[in-house]
């Protein structure tokens, strides 16, 4: 096994996440896409750890941190979506254009 194979997989996952981020209208689906991107980042971290084998498994430690922060992000993100939905009867991000000129 070489590093590239996982790195390419991660890049593909990340690109798919970007695609979802850009085309999805539903805010929940946008969040799902973001999760894909974060998973891709985690793969990279673990791959680098497998390459260098630090004594304290720093790559894995950081992937756990990313996972934790991602979980917090999902909680807050969903709460925000919930409130937006309650106020506007819609969770579509392209209808949230209050900040336009």
């Amino acid at each position: 096994m070489i590093a590239s194979q996982f790195l390419v997989l991660a890049a593909a996952l990340f690109a798919l996440g970007v695609y979802g981020l850009l085309v999805r209208r539903n805010a929940v689906l946008v969040l799902l896409s973001v999760e894909l991107m974060l998973a891709a980042v985690n793969i990279n971290l673990v791959v680098f750890e497998a390459m260098w084998r630090t004594s304290e498994a720093i790559g894995q430690v950081f992937s756990i941190f990313v996972l934790t922060v991602a979980a917090a992000e999902v909680g807050i993100g969903l709460a925000i979506i919930l409130m937006i939905f309650r106020n506007r009867q819609s969770a579509n991000v392209d209808e949230l254009d209050l900040m336009r000129w």
Binding site: M1, I2, A3, S4, L7, V8, A10, A11, A12, F14, A15, N44, V47, A50, M51, W52, R53
Partner: peptide, 16 residues
């Protein structure tokens, strides 16, 4: 992304 990572790390073997 793939170009950057592959050219940088290439065929680096994953140890252990």
């Amino acid at each position: 992304l793939s170009y950057a990572t592959v050219t940088t790390f290439g065929n680096a073997e994953l140890v252990e």
